[in-house]
Write a protein that binds this DNA or RNA. Structure first.
Lengths: 158, 158
DNA sequence: GTTGAAAGTCTTTGCCT
DNA sequence: AGGCAAAGACTTTCAAC
């Protein structure tokens, strides 16, 4: 996968929170040329360090009033691979993990209102074969949401 | 907050998964001029519909091998406001919700390895006053992670 | 929402360290 | 290998319509 040095990390710290910042400004902040930024961003995309880009949309502006996590219990863990395609069909479902602990899976979804949430939970989720129980954790408040930390490394080592 | 019409929605669908796409291409896909795209994106940023932009970074490339959700139980729900600033100090913690259900809070974090995870759970989290119990849900596999759905609306109504 | 022109930015190529 | 400079191509911005 190739090493990610401190210049890479510096670039990532800047752009991971602002995809539309011009490479000229990134270059100035890093003290290198624009071309260097361009080459490194391109290389990191090829290496799979950077997997994509996007805008963050406020769910409320689209009419989604609630964000909910649901703990899903399966009849058998091995049903995981069969259940995922079914879950994937639910557009409101944005994240889907296979987990250790109390639940077999943890999923995240957005709903327009309580009726919509109930409809997803009862009519859609509970009807999927293999799912024997769900536990609903409604997010009443998002205290914070931020990017993964990007620590600098000791470049002499490694 | 102003209405978001179908052209806005079309734009959002395109750019929310690709922040670096040129507005010229967006304009072509939408069948309008470049300036229209620019005006609308700017307006949506001012309105708070678009709250930011960024690159997605592969956690593994930074040395994070595990993604973990932790259900946190508080002594009293009202301690929430006091606990959040403490949690915010943990850089590996990327998301923090106040929730209904089994837990008082649900948090998401990244760890380099099992030792690192244990250290965050035992040394850091459990030491915060007000936290009486935690339940760890390690993500063994991320089946999918995608953007919130952006439905088109019936523009005659509303 | 559109057009057109001016200002600024990105991307490529070849060169240098 | 990796960083740099310059040129042409492309975008963004700002008018007036």
């Amino acid at each position: 996968m190739g090493r990610i040095d401190n210049l890479d990390r510096h670039i990532l710290r800047i752009i991971c929170g602002n995809a539309r910042m011009s490479f000229k400004d990134v270059a100035e902040q890093c003290g290198v040329s624009r071309a260097a930024i361009h080459q490194r961003v391109q290389r990191m995309q090829e290496q799979g360090v950077i997997t994509g880009s996007g805008y963050t949309i406020n769910p409320k502006s689209l009419g989604y009033t609630t964000c909910t996590y649901v703990g899903v219990k399966l009849e058998r863990g091995s049903l995981y691979k069969e259940v995922v395609p079914q879950l994937s069909k639910i557009p409101e479902l944005v994240e889907c993990h296979y987990t250790t602990g109390t639940y077999s899976m943890l999923i995240k979804l957005y709903a327009r209102d309580n009726d919509h949430l109930m409809q997803i939970l009862n009519s859609t989720l509970q009807e999927i074969p293999g799912i024997i129980a769900t536990e609903t954790l409604i997010s009443l408040d998002l205290a914070f949401m931020r990017n993964i930390p990007i620590p600098m490394i000791d470049e002499d080592k490694e």
